[in-house]
Write a protein that binds this DNA or RNA. Structure first.
Lengths: 203, 203
DNA sequence: GTCTATATATGGATAGAC
DNA sequence: GTCTATCCATATATAGAC
């Protein structure tokens, strides 16, 4: 029961932090939105910043599983697209979290947290770089700038999933929900596949 | 002389807002960093929020000139790459500003400002979409998802120019300056050209 | 676990002297 | 134009009753 309430507070706070930014959200507004007493946040989490750290820590991808699963795919392109699909799924289902993470990485506040997130990002980045480098060595892929290629993958998924209002306007969708429905998820996966197919594959 | 001091305050505040976020920066810290009295900010700008609005407004791209210049290029691909280069140049020389703009577009604070920025973005977006659509109609370009294509262009440039700390780490650069030197600018322009060439051109 | 009341700090803004 | 002093609102955090 206590964990349920804790999780609920974390969910509410995650959304508010994503919408307004860490400093703009008061523990008063969190307690109001989550229908709990103000003092409960210090009681459960210790402080506003520790609450924030718990929000960040609870959803970071345990990337090991993905590494193992990607091994089951034969070609490097299939490995890469498998990973891309996993990232798209992950980002679609945790948009508020991703907004927080990318905003935090770009801030000079709480630098220990930014450093930690960047290191986490780097591990994922290196894993994907490695696949592409192997693909190039095996002549499956063209010789291209690997850093920019991996960056492009993250950049597209990040832009689409963490800038909902903008994407909604730019693509003439009626609502945010429409931007993130199953149809759009399929479309972005197909686009990524087409783009990287043309960019990487030798044929 | 008064405009010099105003401009200097705007420069300092822009950097601080980019580094720490709007709410985390106090007018006290701005006045300290800019070596002026606290009261001067209200005197010059009226309020912290009006100062912020002036920072945003002073650097938005007047896109009309670019439209005209892009007309001088023969192919749609050349038009597109001319625009991409202009955007890269612009983003490289105003990184703090771009950090502010993209962060602001993703916040539910000051929604009038976010709406304004998104509309500005949409005009640029539509202009580029239009070029690609024409290229497709003339069979210069393959038939692709135009929205995602334009998004990709902005996504790459945004990711590279507004996430300096991350890029520095991911690409093993010694310092931020190295991430944004002339050599790297050339490299990203070439990468964009290669990527969109493979993605768009029929040959 | 839950609540009220409060200690304490810091923020934006401005009045008014010079 | 520049500065000091101050008003007032709001923030986090916690002590202590229940």
């Amino acid at each position: 029961m206590a964990t349920d309430k804790r999780e609920y507070i974390l969910d509410v706070a995650e959304r508010l932090f994503a919408e307004q930014g860490f400093e703009a959200v008061s523990i008063r507004s969190i307690s109001k939105e989550a229908h709990i007493n103000i003092a409960m946040i210090s009681y459960y989490f210790g402080s506003k910043e520790k609450l924030y750290e718990e929000i960040i820590n609870r959803k970071l991808i345990p990337f090991e599983k993905i590494k193992q699963m990607s091994d089951t795919h034969a070609s490097y392109f299939d490995k890469l697209m498998f990973i891309a699909d996993v990232i798209v799924d992950k980002f679609f289902e945790s948009r508020n979290f991703q907004i927080l993470v990318f905003r935090e990485m770009n801030l000079n506040q709480r630098t220990h947290m930014a450093d930690f997130l960047i290191e986490h990002m780097q591990r994922n980045f290196l894993f994907i770089s490695d696949i592409i480098k192997k693909g190039i060595r095996k002549k499956e892929f063209k010789n291209t700038d690997v850093d920019f290629t991996v960056m492009t993958l993250f950049a597209i998924i990040r832009m689409y999933t963490t800038s909902g209002m903008m994407i909604c306007k730019l693509t003439n969708k009626a609502s945010i929900d429409e931007v993130y429905d199953a149809k759009q998820k399929t479309k972005i996966k197909k686009f990524i596949s087409d783009l990287f197919s043309a960019h990487l594959l030798t044929r």
